[in-house]
Design a binder for these strands. Structure first.
Lengths: 352, 352
DNA sequence: TCACATCCTGCAATCGTTTTCATTGATCTG
DNA sequence: CAGATCAATGAAAACGATTGCAGGATGTGA
């Protein structure tokens, strides 16, 4: 740290001024090609590394981005983070990653701490209140993922289209009584999806979608959903996300209910684990990494030139049909009521 | 950025000098309690935020840590990252997270870029060569996770103890022919585990452990392992990590082979997904988050005072017995050879 | 009351880059 | 060939916080 070599050292070694070295290195073409080459070579030879703090002081740019996610252990956010990280790196930015643990207060605190350290901030699935979010305007550029708010740019997928595709798929398979297992209350995505359901249902003859409630967007969240769905006599469930869908399937399996023969389950996101289970999960794929990289692109764009009013766009989504959904039996399979435990649990056991 | 208020502003507002403000805020007790209170209040009132770049320039400390992991989408690293991030935050550090995509060249590049920006660096499961790693000595503090190298501090779990516990468990269940599905070649952990196997086997009467090869430490890596294990007539497999174990189980299931009745599978790590599947995975738990936080503790310790020669310690591990392992049948179950497909696939189908 | 230690506080230098402005040759123009 | 334009470089002033040093106030003891 103390012995590190500076522009000054490079300059001295060549008998030029620090200014020239700085210019040559920042690739301004204000310097003669020959001297420039000399400087670049010498810099490499001496192993010069620019001091970011100093540069930041002088320019006001820090070369860093901040990313706040609710939970790194959630595969969804892990993928988004990966996308952000890769693109930011390619663009020459380093990224601070912070995990709010699904807590809006922690998140607010993180934002406060991060803000002065970065050139731009990405808030993924922010749990903060609209008011808190609104208060972020006017400072450094802030970009939202999976949320929209007047005055802030965002990257989102079309939640309404997502549920539409999922419901159409189920409807085509003959399902008429479908349940929706909602995400965290206050989640913007959840709101959008409920909206999407309302809009899609009228177009699908005979379809009836009932809300099963709001649940934590994790594996455990799905467990109780399964029971509710069975009790309500539904033939299919659309879950807020894949994790929850996985939980539902696990619970159904534990109760000896066959998926998809007796109950179809659809997830949202297409996380890696969706193909990792059996039956593989039918889900609506959101381009997770791309969401991250798009966010970086947009954010950087708003950093460099004049503020280009970029139109909001949706990233494309698509339904991935796997094995967790099937045609609803023309005659709902009669289940010998007293004999649920009579199914051969052992045989339907060996599976991941 | 430009309109942000500085120590100067605070100073002027109170008629004191910037130095005093600085001192008051950095909580040096070199300032009179009263003026100090005044300053603190005023600072808050004006919404003063210290400019980290400037501070970094002046002090040489940046208040940041760097973390490099091979793959954020791997739940193992996600958990470690979460641990690092939480502890660093508590200690007042922000952390740059970088994902090397399992590529040692990318990793080296990341390290090079990150080094000048941080006070300390954590390399998790580094894929770099010993030489590259050795070259890191002497610069900023570097700490290794899951790897040991002379001259660099580290946080590791006892890989040899891990395999010992796993093998003892299998041995106790009666298994004698066990396969080991290795991790990436060049992985330090993998080396340690193979070493551990050699040491544990002599103590377990009749046990025979065969290596099935080296595989990518991901879900897909396990797929081919399953076939090998079956072909070799083994009764149990120990996988390099949980992800791989999950892949093995999935493949076995697809082939209609019952886990654990016909084949026991043991993983390592205890990632969240281990309980998410059925049969739930028996695995040796490594305290993932704790690994992360311990790393931060150690690193910060080496930052502040004189270099305290901290003795290397292992973090505790424990085997978690779930449903993917079972007693080996006294008579290996006869499998009607021509009739593998005759098993009721449908019934063993509905499961996660 | 004087000398002297004790506390606080201000001054000014410093960290390493960037950047504006000025300078110096050199090239161009008519 | 004189004057103007231009390219390349150097000198120096920021950027904002920290910190060694010095000075002024206060208090203590003789």
């Amino acid at each position: 740290m103390k012995g590190s070599i500076t522009v000054r050292d490079v300059a001295k070694a060549l008998g030029v001024s620090p200014s020239t070295v700085s210019r040559a290195l920042s690739s301004s073409d204000l310097v003669a090609p020959r001297t420039r080459q000399l400087i670049v070579d010498k810099a490499r030879e001496l192993g010069y590394t620019p001091n970011n703090a100093a540069r930041g002081l002088a320019t006001g740019r820090k070369g860093t981005l901040g990313l706040v996610v609710p939970d790194l252990e959630n595969p969804y956010f892990a993928s988004v983070t990966k996308g952000v990280q890769a693109r930011a790196l390619a663009a020459g930015y380093s990224v601070f990653v912070a995990d709010s643990d699904e807590d809006s207060h922690v998140e607010r605190e993180l934002v406060r701490k991060l803000k002065p350290q970065v050139d731009g901030l990405i808030l993924c699935s922010s749990r903060m209140s609209d008011a808190d979010l609104a208060a972020l305007q006017g400072g450094i550029p802030v970009l939202l993922i999976n949320r929209r708010m007047e005055g802030l740019p965002d990257v989102t997928v079309n939640d309404q289209e997502i549920v539409r595709q999922a419901l159409e798929h189920l409807h085509a398979l003959g399902h008429r009584r479908v349940g929706y297992a909602g995400g965290p209350t206050g989640s913007w995505s959840d709101k959008q999806r409920r909206l999407g359901i309302e809009q899609a249902v009228p177009g699908l003859a005979g379809l009836e979608v009932t809300s099963l409630g709001s649940f934590a967007p994790v594996f455990g969240g799905g467990q109780s959903v399964a029971d509710l769905a069975v009790a309500a006599g539904l033939t299919a469930v659309l879950a807020y996300n894949d994790l929850m869908a996985l939980g539902i399937i696990a619970r159904l399996h534990a109760r000896g209910i066959n998926v998809p023969d007796e109950m179809s389950v659809v997830g949202i996101d297409d996380i890696n684990a969706a193909t990792l289970i059996s039956p593989a999960l039918t889900t609506v794929r959101a381009p997770l990494r791309k969401v991250g990289s798009a966010a970086v692109d947009l954010l950087i764009e708003s950093l460099d030139p004049g503020p280009v009013p970029r139109a909001a766009e949706y990233l494309p989504i698509e339904i991935i049909v796997r094995q967790s959904t099937a045609v609803v039996p023309s005659v709902i399979r009669e289940r010998p009521s007293g004999n649920v435990a009579g199914r051969d649990e052992r045989k339907s056991h060996a599976s991941i």
